[in-house]
């Protein structure tokens, strides 16, 4: 019994390591001007090479661990955002990329705009910027991994969830 327990613990440790080392990303554009989207895609290019951290842009919520959202949430797409978030199996993290996704940006209080992503789903890391720079996005994803570690109880949660 003892061995079995130890084994599960060890396996759990490895799984946690995997979780930190292999965040697969799904990218959803809520209503962005495409500025942030281009920067997200730029992260995948040879210059920035997100795959160094095991990050893949996977495109299927059922396979993804991290939801990258760009743009403001509006009434037409809030349900879609919710659906995609719900279809991601736990554990998962959400990153709001760009000022619009963080708070609604210049579109805040528009008649058709709900506001930032956190109005609809819980957000773990905010990456402000118009547009957010690729370096900032990469650091944001790494910060999200710290948050994940904190949630898994591997270390205390980081003091900030906003990358500046």
């Amino acid at each position: 019994m003892d061995i079995a327990k130890k084994l599960t613990e060890a396996l759990g440790g490895y799984i946690n390591k995997g979780r930190v080392k292999s965040p697969w990303v799904i990218h959803y554009d809520c209503g962005s001007c495409n500025g942030c989207d281009i920067e997200v895609l730029a992260c995948l290019t040879p210059v920035f090479d997100l795959e160094r951290f095991g990050i893949l842009n996977i495109g299927d919520p059922k396979h993804a661990d991290v939801l990258l959202v760009t743009g403001t949430v509006n009434h037409r797409n809030k349900a879609v955002l919710r659906n995609i978030y719900d279809q991601m199996p736990d554990p998962k993290a959400v990153i709001a990329v760009g000022t619009c996704a963080c708070s609604g940006g210049v579109f805040q209080d528009c008649y058709n705009v709900v506001g930032g992503v956190d109005q609809i789903i819980p957000v773990d890391v905010y990456i402000p910027g118009c547009a957010a720079k690729p370096e900032a996005i990469i650091d944001g994803v790494v910060l999200a991994l710290e948050v994940v570690k904190g949630k898994l109880g591997l270390q205390p949660l980081p003091k900030t969830t906003v990358f500046e």
Binding site: K17, G18, K21, S22, D49, R52, G54, D65
Partner: peptide
């Protein structure tokens, strides 16, 4: 590109095992 670590596929599979 640099590319992921050599052990990346193992991390992926381990992580997938831990998903709900």
């Amino acid at each position: 590109r640099m590319g992921p670590p050599l052990l990346q596929p193992f991390y992926d599979v381990l992580k997938l095992c831990g998903k709900s």
